[in-house]
């Protein structure tokens, strides 16, 4: 019996003595195939080791909230600023300011440095061209086009509570139509939805595969995960204004590695890092960075002004209403 105890003890000690090395821990809402682009470059540029967990924005918010007493990661990297504003209102973020942050235009960051913009993105429709032909319809160019009978059971997007993309859609509809009208509209839309995903960009691949016909997601995801990959996808925008995001990053309150986090945030704002976004067709915030030729710029689309502070603060209430009236309301 004694030998058993000794054995167990040795294994236990071996376990505890693992994981001692200084590494930066990042939670990201970027695609599993995208975050390595920046993180590997950062590791090479600085020699700092990084570990990343990918979650959808809503899940990320929930995780940071769950770990508030015992934060496990230092940086919240990517995803719409709205979720980070919601986190700020819940006291989950730490303000960060630096020379690099100073250079970011005021419209793209929190005045107190709770979140800092990295990129711009607009909500769009990605439609499968083969299926459009089969169904005999044009790609949707209005929110109301989605309600056409041909699209019944052929549209998908994510849950607004797990995904920042889908919450941006909800917020945009509220901004465009007013809250009650937006919910009335979504009740119609709900009948057209095939299913909801947890991740915002998943519907692009699904549209590409033909599992669905139209996916509602960010334009850069539709281009990168759909068109550039070789799927028969066409990108369109709703002619009423569409919604947009400021993709942001922030430092988590009580970050276990604040120094490394600061280095990452500063590096991510550099022209060098921002130019890497070419690979994902994002529009970088840094004006010195290179922009992908096919990327959709802010001036190219008709966007609705969105009060991110308001939608960040109202998130819990709007989500509750969405679940009660739409997801299970009918």
């Amino acid at each position: 019996m004694k030998r058993l105890f000794v054995l167990a003890l040795v294994v236990l000690i071996a376990m505890v003595s693992f994981a001692k090395e200084q590494v930066l821990h990042i939670y990201t809402a970027l695609d599993e195939n995208e975050w390595p682009i920046y993180v590997k470059a950062f590791e090479q540029a600085t020699g700092i080791k990084v570990q990343v967990v990918r979650m959808s924005s809503g899940e990320l918010l929930a995780r940071v909230e769950a770990e508030a007493k015992n934060p496990q990661a230092s940086v919240w990297f990517g995803g719409p600023a709205i979720d980070q504003i919601a986190a700020k209102k819940k006291g989950l973020l730490a303000p960060y300011k630096s020379e690099a942050v100073e250079k970011v235009p005021a419209a793209f960051k929190d005045p107190d440095g709770y979140w800092i913009g990295i990129y711009f993105g607009a909500i769009a429709f990605g439609s499968n061209t083969q299926q459009l032909k089969q169904l005999g319809v044009d790609a949707p160019t209005s929110w109301y086009d989605l309600l056409k009978p041909q699209f019944k059971g052929r549209i998908s997007l994510a849950y607004p509570y797990t995904s920042g993309t889908a919450y941006t859609v909800l917020a945009a509809l509220v901004a465009i139509m007013g809250e009650d009208k937006a919910f009335d509209y979504w009740k119609q839309l709900h009948k057209q939805i095939h299913h909801y995903n947890t991740s915002g960009s998943a519907c692009v691949t699904q549209a590409g595969l033909g599992e669905i016909t139209v996916g509602i997601a960010f334009a850069h995801d539709i281009i990168t995960k759909g068109i550039d990959k070789g799927y028969p996808i066409v990108l369109t925008f709703p002619k009423e204004p569409t919604g947009y995001e400021i993709g942001a990053m922030s430092m988590i309150k009580g970050a276990p590695e604040p120094d490394l986090a600061a280095k990452f945030i500063d590096w991510m704002l550099s022209a060098e890092a921002q130019s890497l976004m070419v690979k994902w067709n994002r529009i970088p915030i840094n004006p010195e960075a290179t922009v992908a030729p096919g990327a959709v710029k802010m001036q190219d689309v008709n966007i609705v002004p969105m009060d991110f502070e308001y939608f960040g603060a109202q998130k819990d209430r709007l989500i509750e209403r969405w679940k009660e009236e739409i997801e299970y309301g009918m």
Partner: peptide
């Protein structure tokens, strides 16, 4: 209970399916 420090392949597979990277 998974975290950034320790990740599991099943969680990754589920993520890939969720993302339709079949």
């Amino acid at each position: 209970v998974v975290s950034g420090k320790w990740n599991l392949i099943t969680v990754r597979i589920l993520g890939a399916v969720g993302n339709s990277d079949l």
